[in-house]
């Protein structure tokens, strides 16, 4: 920046300013380097070390054994497949539930009501996931509110229950709860950015409101739909807490396997290889997300 907008020359301090600017970012860069890049890099490096129970840290002995083990054991491959399937299903369901919510928020013009809705979404997003899962478990558990209500009206026998959690469906229900606010906030911006005259044009050409929605608004919100789905995919494939509580360790996804290998069996190198595979799946979705949403990514999402 050699001149400012008022036209005054500011060249005389520009190089000084450039150095000052880097001083601003260097503390965080150093912090991220030491406590993010190096630890994660060392972890991935150690996944190429032979598995020695109880040993932590990178050694110079290299092998692909951990990856061979992962890709040759059907239960780990099944866990990877289950993780991807789970994240895919959650992205789709979250999109279906979130779209009408985002549409209503985007089309609410009254500033107070609009802010109120956004506050609700933001508060839900920021609230500790364990607390929200506690609520989900009270509702869906074997002796939960739904089963109690079903017994009360006599739809099921007194001592029986319908299995609503501790299975794949329960984990999906929990992850959708987790992912909804992220999807809503991604969609609201895109829907609001659609030129209202597009819809008006369709309407004035005789399209019914519903038809105008399906043919005009929905296609125009595709970038947000894609970005939101990828974001939700990355978030839900990474979650440990939701499969742990809603699946009761019966839905073996990659984060659960990482924790079991490391905390229960002290197999650090093999755990690191699963971590690396999970990281690649999640980061892959994030990279596509950044590419898709580069012009649209917001402050928080």
């Amino acid at each position: 920046m050699t001149t400012n907008r008022t036209g005054f020359p500011v060249r005389h301090y520009s190089s000084y300013r450039r150095q000052m600017k880097w001083l601003l970012v260097s503390p965080l860069l150093v912090f991220f380097l030491i406590f993010f890049v190096i630890p994660v890099g060392l972890l991935f490096a150690s996944s190429f070390n032979p598995q020695i129970i109880g040993q932590v840290g990178f050694t110079s002995e290299l092998t692909l054994d951990n990856y061979t083990r992962f890709f040759s054991r059907s239960n780990y491959m099944a866990a990877a497949g289950r993780s991807v399937l789970l994240a895919g299903v959650v992205s789709l369901i979250t999109l279906i539930i979130a779209y009408p919510m985002a549409f209503v928020i985007a089309k609410t013009e009254h500033p107070g009501r609009n802010t109120f809705l956004l506050i609700i979404v933001l508060a839900a997003m920021q609230l500790d996931m364990v607390i929200r899962l506690y609520g989900m478990m009270v509702i869906l558990g074997d002796n939960g509110l739904i089963n109690q209500a079903l017994r009360l009206v006599g739809l099921i026998q007194a001592e029986t229950s319908v299995r609503l959690m501790y299975n794949f469906g329960g984990v999906v229900a929990g992850l959708v709860q987790f992912a909804l606010p992220f999807m809503i906030l991604t969609l609201v911006g895109v829907i609001r950015g659609i030129d209202p005259s597009l819809e008006e044009a369709a309407r004035s050409l005789g399209a019914k409101r519903w038809r105008a929605f399906v043919r005009v608004i929905l296609p125009a919100s595709m970038p947000g739909i894609l970005a939101g789905s990828l974001l939700v995919f990355a978030l839900s494939i990474s979650s440990y807490i939701v499969p742990a509580l809603m699946g009761g360790f019966r839905v073996g996804v990659l984060p659960i396997h990482i924790f079991q290998q490391v905390a229960e069996s002290a197999r650090f190198q093999f755990g690191a290889s699963i971590a690396f595979i999970l990281f690649l799946l999640s980061a892959g979705a994030v990279l596509v997300y950044l590419h898709v949403g580069s012009r649209r990514s917001g402050g928080l999402a």
């Binding site: 965080l28 993010f36 630890p39 060392l42 972890l43 932590v56 990178f58 440990y240 980061a283």
Partner: peptide, 25 residues
């Protein structure tokens, strides 16, 4: 900017595991 924002979407279990191993080693 994307690098600084990336922890939001990357697996917390993996980063926690990485830090844990880093502190010990």
């Amino acid at each position: 900017r994307a690098f600084f924002l990336s922890p939001v979407v990357l697996p917390g279990v993996v980063v926690g595991f990485a830090l844990f191993a880093f502190y010990i080693s």
